[in-house]
Write a protein that binds this DNA or RNA. Structure first.
Length: 277
DNA sequence: GTCCAGGATACTC
DNA sequence: GAGTATCATGGA
């Protein structure tokens, strides 16, 4: 078991906020996950995060996965305002995860013009060809597993027009794409590089760079972020212009702010809809 | 039937 | 370079 002390993570908010689609909540409030083939059960005990099934030797890996050495209040103090404060108070304890690259890439290719429940369902079917762990969760497939399963199989999981993007991504990865190199590039360089993948536009690129490459200035602008930036921050323009303004405004850790604001915007909308019924 | 969902791409002007 | 049609799918 690996214990990460005083992380104060909110597992529900972290795993439901749209950055990952594979963790599964159990009735007792714990969450089962399979990361890089490692099966774990995440449990909040007091202020600590306990990862049952994780090896002590992998403690550093898990600290990095949960971004345990970053103090978000401190990192965002210079851009704190009433909206970010409200979002962080309403949806506390979100950790911006540092996930395996290929899983993040495929997940956000699938996310294009899609909704979270359906993304989750498609990702689950995508994982069915990978080995199952002792908790009954599949690993995320390797590119080679996808290539072995065939393009017709990729089409069969209901990913629609994104199937060809997933297929080509597996080929590009198998050809030796160096995902690790993205971490050492500047943000603009990494952004340009990752857009080699078909189906990866500006927004998907930002999600992958933020959630699996350590680029925490990346500020994904989707439908929710777009509404949020206009309604809460008075920004104007199309998405590319909004993104430029947002990155300028929120700075080096803008992606973390974005994740709180995005999730809160979505939650607010949900509440509003429920009240109207 | 229409609209929407963590958009991207190819095409037109 | 800025608009626009098209791309699958399923739930509201």
């Amino acid at each position: 078991m690996v214990r990460i002390e005083k992380l104060c993570i909110d597992l529900d908010n972290t795993f439901r906020c749209g950055q990952t689609f594979r963790w599964k909540r159990q009735e007792d409030g714990s969450w089962l996950g399979n990361v890089d083939g490692h099966a774990v059960r995440a449990v909040r005990e007091g202020d600590d995060l306990c990862l049952y099934g994780a090896q002590e030797a992998d403690a550093a890996y898990w600290r990095k996965y949960f971004d345990a050495d970053s103090d978000y209040e401190k990192l965002l103090s210079c851009v704190m305002d009433e909206h970010l404060r409200t979002a962080m108070d309403a949806c506390p304890g979100i950790r911006v995860l540092d996930q395996p690259f290929y899983e993040s890439l495929c997940s956000f290719i699938i996310s294009a013009n899609n909704n979270i429940p359906r993304i989750t369902a498609i990702v689950e079917r995508f994982c069915a060809i990978a080995p199952m762990d002792e908790n009954g969760l599949h690993a995320f497939p390797t590119p080679q597993m996808v290539l072995d399963a065939g393009e017709d199989w990729v089409k069969s999981i209901g990913s629609g027009y994104r199937a060809k993007y997933l297929w080509e991504a597996a080929q590009h990865m198998a050809d030796g794409f160096d995902a690790q190199a993205l971490r050492n590039m500047s943000y603009p360089e990494a952004c340009e590089c990752i857009r080699q993948f078909k189906g990866v536009g500006e927004k998907v690129a930002d999600c992958v760079l933020l959630f699996s490459c350590g680029h925490r200035a990346a500020f994904p602008v989707d439908t929710w972020s777009e509404k949020m930036l206009m309604q809460w921050y008075g920004m104007m323009g199309k998405r590319p212009q909004l993104k430029v303004q947002a990155m300028e405004h929120f700075g080096a850790y803008g992606g973390i702010a974005q994740q709180y604001l995005f999730y809160h915007a979505m939650q607010s909308k949900l509440k509003k809809e429920n009240n109207e019924k």
